[in-house]
C-alpha cells in the first residue's frame, strides 16, 4: 500500500464532518450512521477517535466471512469486498476490533472504507488535520519525528507529533 489514511485522535474535535462527507459521498444521504468512518465520542473526557477500516495485512474480517467476499487487492493493498455476494450476516463486524465494517442499511450489506479510490472525501473536509492521506514515506517520516521528539522530551513541538 503506498498511501495511508492516518488518524491523529489528539487533533480530532468530534465535529463529525468526516462522517457526513463519507455518507453523502457514498450513499447520497446526509446520515452519519451510513458513514464508513465513525467517531467514538467520550465528551466527558474529551476523547474523540475516528475509527475506520485499517486495511490490515491479514484481516480478521476476511477469515470470518462466510461467503468469502472479502479479499486483499494485490495492487493497492486495500481490503475489498465483492458486495453482490454479501448476505449481511455481520460476522466480519464482530471479528473487526476497529469497527471498520459498517452496515449499509440501504443495500443491506456490510461495507468498509475504500479510500474513495485514492481521494478520500473525509480527509478533504477534516478541519483540524486529524485525518490525513499520505504516502508511506511521509507516514514513516512522521513516526520518526514523533519518536525523536518523545525521546528528546519536546513532545508537542515537532511537526506531526501524535503524543
Amino acid at each position: 500500500m503506498n498511501k495511508h489514511l492516518i488518524i491523529d485522535s489528539v487533533k480530532c474535535t468530534g465535529c463529525g464532518l468526516c462522517e457526513l462527507a463519507c455518507a453523502i459521498n457514498k450513499t447520497g444521504q446526509c446520515q452519519p450512521y451510513l458513514a464508513r468512518i465513525k467517531i467514538w465520542r467520550e465528551e466527558t473526557r474529551g476523547i474523540f477517535v475516528p475509527m475506520t477500516c485499517q486495511h490490515c495485512d491479514n484481516p480478521p474480517c476476511a477469515s470470518a466471512c462466510l461467503m468469502n467476499v472479502i479479499t486483499k487487492d494485490p495492487a493497492t493493498g486495500l481490503t475489498i469486498r465483492r458486495l453482490e455476494g454479501c448476505i449481511g450476516c455481520r460476522a466480519c463486524q464482530l471479528a473487526c476490533p476497529f469497527e471498520g465494517c459498517s452496515y449499509d442499511y440501504l443495500q443491506e450489506v456490510i461495507v468498509n472504507c475504500d479510500h474513495c479510490g485514492g481521494n478520500p472525501e473525509c480527509v478533504k473536509y477534516c478541519p483540524t488535520g486529524a485525518l490525513r492521506y499520505i504516502s508511506t514515506a511521509e507516514a514513516l517520516d512522521l513516526e520518526r519525528s514523533a519518536e525523536a521528539a518523545r525521546r528528546c522530551g519536546i513532545a508537542g513541538l515537532v511537526k506531526g507529533d501524535r503524543r
Binding site: W40, I47, V49, M51, E99
Partner: peptide
C-alpha cells in the same frame, strides 16, 4: 487513564 486510553482507543467501545 485518558492518555493511555487514547493510545488503545479502539478498545473503548
Amino acid at each position: 487513564d485518558p492518555d493511555l486510553a487514547r493510545r488503545v482507543a479502539w478498545y473503548l467501545p
